[in-house]
């Protein structure tokens, strides 16, 4: 089963996703796509580690190329998050840009084929009304389209608002 969770910053996506994962089969893998930059990034990673502590997740840091990832066992996967993965697939370390869409979709499809339950966290980046230039505009558009395709693949789509899950598609897994 695939569950897509969306919502703004600090709306409780991660902790809710983790609580849903606790009802899903072990082993549980947390796939971290965020490359932590600087002190702020380190603090964010630390906060997420604290949230996950004691929940039995094995953390796998992987910034891109999810299409070739082989998971050690079938179980539950929590992928966090599509915005980071898309940025990492779109811009390489030298800043060169490629279209991230197919790689992200193929990567998530590869994860889905190797686990029982897949939880994918994303964010709605296209609704701030700001007109961005160049690569940022392309990034926003790519995430919008990727989210739509992931929602098609997903059994359940949940929007989080202030920690409250709002079901957009399917139903919350029991």
């Amino acid at each position: 089963m695939m569950i897509l969770l969306t919502g703004g910053s600090a709306c409780g996506k991660s902790s809710y996703a983790e609580s849903l994962c606790m009802r899903s089969p072990t082993p549980r893998f947390y796939l971290a796509a965020m490359q932590p930059y600087g002190e702020e990034g380190a603090r964010r990673v630390e906060r997420h580690r604290r949230l996950r502590a004691g929940k039995g997740f094995e953390t796998i840091e992987r910034y891109r190329d999810y299409g070739s990832l082989v998971l050690p066992e079938r179980g539950t996967v929590l992928l966090e998050c599509i915005c980071n993965l898309t940025a990492n697939e779109m811009f390489d370390d030298e800043g060169r840009m490629t279209d991230p869409r197919e790689k992200v979709i193929e990567g998530v499809g590869n994860l889905a084929s190797q686990c029982v339950d897949l939880f994918v966290i994303t964010n709605d980046v296209g609704s701030d009304g700001v007109e961005y230039e160049g690569s940022t505009a392309e990034y926003v558009r790519a995430i919008g389209e990727i989210n739509a395709r992931l929602a098609e693949m997903a059994d359940t789509v949940i929007e989080m608002v202030a920690g409250i899950p709002i079901v957009i598609k399917g139903k919350i897994p029991q």
Binding site: G8, S9, C83, D124, V125, S127, D128, V130, Y139, V140
Partner: peptide, 15 residues
């Protein structure tokens, strides 16, 4: 106001 959607701001104070 809900303020968490959209592109993550460049500016640290905004984040």
């Amino acid at each position: 106001c809900e303020v968490g959607s959209g592109v993550i701001p460049d500016n640290l104070a905004d984040r």
